[in-house]
Amino acid sequence: MSSQPSATADETAVSGAREPVIELRDVAFGYTATPVVEDVSLSVQNGEYVAVVGPNGSGKSTLMQLMLGLLEPDTGAARLFGEPAHSFDDGGRLGYVAQHASASKEMPITVREVVKMGRFPHVGFGRLSSRDWAIVDDALDTVGMSAFAGRRITQLSGGQRQRAFIARALASEAELLVLDEPTVGVDVESVQAFYGLLESLNERGITVLLIEHDLGAVTDNADRVVCLNREVYFDGPTAEFVESDALAHAFGTAANFLGGSE
């Protein structure tokens, strides 16, 4: 929507400073009595490239769901673009990419139809206008998938599929891109290209939040690292994270595998 950026600019003018894209204050959440995440306070500013790392079961995905408003914190507050995350409904500003590479849904649907869904928050019950379709085709072009537009998504490789899902987020003109372990099951060359794409999108001003357990990918790409294991063990620039011993604390002593994967 072309009206969106100007609206954001107006808000900025009124409030004087940009609101953080994501803000968590003393957030705790548990599916049972035992909390999965606890005492988490952090904020992500517009244009940042943040990676959340932690061992399996550390609450990374739960934290992401809290940030996106899919879960409501037991205590504390989660805000998205300045609104309570749980009631935030301007879905066009969010792009979400999950571990789809391993999904094996046999649904007949083409790449273009998947990318088209990115426009749904903007068109509601209506039809896509020619401008909407132009944005869809443009997004496909950006991720280099134009030639695959008419292919069934189930026939694609993991890497190609993830590109399609990125294109869907682009088509929604998302300001915040949230990726939950996006490269699981994706071949090595595609992973390289994939992080290259994230990098350039971030340079274009999109806020990127990456949930990862592949530490190599994180240290090579993200500007800021949040290391989580129920609580936040480290939150700061990537370079400091590499030198710190936060990793050993969060992952336990046996985890000396910087650059490797689990």
């Binding site: 072309s2 950026p5 244009g47 132009a134 443009d138 950006t142 001003g205």
Partner: peptide, 13 residues
């Protein structure tokens, strides 16, 4: 088409 949307964000980055 889409570049116009993001230039605005890039400024405050």
């Amino acid at each position: 088409t889409t570049a116009t949307v993001w230039t605005d964000e890039a400024d405050g980055r």
